[in-house]
Simulated scan of single mutants.
Amino acid sequence: MQSGAPGEGTGTNSMVAGINMAVFKNTKNIDGATKFVKFMTSDEEQKVLNKAYGSIPPVKAAQEDPAFNGPALAVLRETLATSAAALPQVPEESQFETVVGTAVKELFADAAAGRPVTEASVKSKLDKAQQQMPKK
């Protein structure tokens, strides 16, 4: 719950998410970049991408494809419509993703090399990542 005890406040069961695309005004090939964004957001490409990932296209025309009317996506549509919220913007999110991602990558490398990955080694890597984050 976002606030209060259970039964009070607003229940949030999911997040609204997506992938942002942009073309910067100083892009060397602005026409090519603009065409790429138009391609990626086209009805047909949204159908291809969202079928592959099992998600709902943000493009309304693409949502009309029968592939997006199954029971699993009906649950997702209902959740997004009634109990999803945008994540708060966190200035340090990129740094967080980098330091935690590095910790996880190192743990996978240990496992791949046959070194033990233990509760203590996970805690140590995450503690190291936490120390790299700005103090609040």
Rank of each mutant, 00 (worst) to 15 (best):
Q95V: 05
L73K: 02
E64D: 12
F108W: 10
P66K: 03
V48Q: 04
G18V: 03
K25S: 09
A67M: 00
G11C: 07
V75I: 15
K128A: 15
I19F: 08
A84E: 01
V48M: 05
A74L: 04
N69R: 01
T41K: 13
L73V: 02
L73P: 00
P71Y: 00
P71T: 00
S83A: 14
E92R: 05
A84F: 03
E92Y: 08
V37Y: 07
A111H: 04
Y53V: 14
I30N: 03
A67G: 01
E64M: 09
V48D: 02
G54L: 08
A33L: 08
E45V: 01
K47T: 03
V90R: 11
A86N: 13
Q132I: 09
P6C: 04
V16F: 09
Q63W: 01
L87Q: 14
E8P: 11
P134G: 07
V104K: 07
A109N: 03
Q95S: 00
F68I: 00
E8L: 12
K135A: 05
A113K: 13
A111K: 03
I56R: 02
K38D: 14
N13D: 12
T34F: 08
K25P: 04
E44Q: 06
I56C: 08
K47F: 04
V117D: 01
S124T: 02
E119K: 15
G7H: 02
A113T: 12
L80C: 11
P58C: 15
K60T: 15
F24A: 14
T27P: 00
K128V: 14
A111N: 06
D31Y: 11
P66D: 03
E93F: 14
K128E: 15
K47Q: 04
P88C: 02
V23R: 01
D43S: 07
T10H: 10
F24M: 12
N29S: 08
S55G: 08
A109D: 03
N20D: 10
S3Q: 06
M15Q: 12
